[in-house]
Amino acid sequence: MDISGFNTLLTRIVTAFNPTQYDTLVALKKRQAILYFIQMTALIFVVALLLMIPNLFSVPEMIHNEFSKFERLEIDVNYSQVEPINLPQYNPVITIDTTPSPEKTLSGFLLITDRSLYYRLTPFTKGDRIALEEENTTGIGNIVVSLLILALPTLLVLTYLYTLLKYSIIICIVAVVSFILARVARFGLELPQTFKIALFASTPMITLALLTKPYVPSLGYLEYLVYLIFFILGCIKIGDFEEVAKPKERER
Rank of each mutant, 00 (worst) to 15 (best):
1 M>K: 00
3 I>C: 09
3 I>G: 04
6 F>L: 15
7 N>A: 10
7 N>L: 14
7 N>T: 07
8 T>I: 00
9 L>K: 04
10 L>Y: 06
10 L>N: 07
12 R>W: 09
14 V>I: 03
16 A>E: 01
17 F>M: 10
18 N>A: 06
21 Q>I: 04
22 Y>M: 03
27 A>R: 01
31 R>I: 15
34 I>N: 05
36 Y>G: 04
37 F>K: 01
37 F>T: 02
39 Q>S: 00
40 M>L: 03
40 M>E: 03
42 A>V: 06
47 V>Q: 06
47 V>G: 10
47 V>H: 08
48 A>G: 08
48 A>C: 09
50 L>W: 01
51 L>R: 04
53 I>A: 08
54 P>Q: 09
54 P>L: 13
57 F>S: 04
58 S>K: 05
58 S>H: 09
59 V>F: 02
61 E>T: 14
61 E>Y: 08
63 I>M: 11
63 I>E: 13
64 H>M: 03
64 H>E: 12
65 N>D: 11
68 S>H: 08
70 F>V: 09
70 F>A: 11
70 F>K: 03
71 E>K: 15
71 E>F: 11
72 R>V: 08
72 R>K: 09
75 I>V: 10
75 I>E: 00
76 D>L: 07
77 V>Q: 13
80 S>Y: 03
81 Q>K: 05
82 V>P: 01
83 E>S: 07
84 P>V: 06
85 I>M: 12
85 I>T: 07
89 Q>F: 09
93 V>F: 09
95 T>W: 08
97 D>V: 15
98 T>D: 14
108 G>Q: 09
109 F>T: 12
112 I>R: 02
113 T>G: 10
118 Y>I: 15
119 Y>G: 07
120 R>I: 02
120 R>S: 06
125 T>H: 14
125 T>I: 12
126 K>A: 15
126 K>D: 14
127 G>T: 07
128 D>E: 10
129 R>S: 12
129 R>P: 03
131 A>Q: 12
133 E>M: 10
133 E>C: 06
134 E>H: 11
135 E>H: 14
137 T>W: 07
140 I>E: 00
144 V>Y: 13
148 L>I: 15
149 I>E: 00
152 L>V: 00
153 P>E: 05
158 L>F: 13
158 L>A: 13
159 T>E: 10
159 T>S: 11
162 Y>Q: 07
163 T>I: 05
163 T>A: 12
166 K>P: 04
166 K>Q: 08
168 S>A: 12
168 S>I: 00
171 I>S: 02
172 C>Y: 06
173 I>V: 15
176 V>Y: 03
177 V>F: 02
183 R>P: 00
184 V>A: 06
185 A>H: 04
186 R>N: 08
187 F>D: 12
189 L>G: 04
191 L>F: 15
193 Q>T: 14
207 T>V: 12
209 A>E: 11
211 L>F: 06
215 Y>L: 08
216 V>S: 07
217 P>T: 08
219 L>R: 00
219 L>N: 02
221 Y>S: 10
225 L>C: 14
227 Y>S: 00
228 L>W: 15
229 I>N: 02
230 F>K: 05
231 F>N: 00
232 I>G: 00
232 I>E: 01
237 K>S: 03
240 D>S: 12
241 F>P: 04
242 E>N: 14
243 E>L: 15
245 A>I: 15
249 E>T: 12
249 E>S: 11
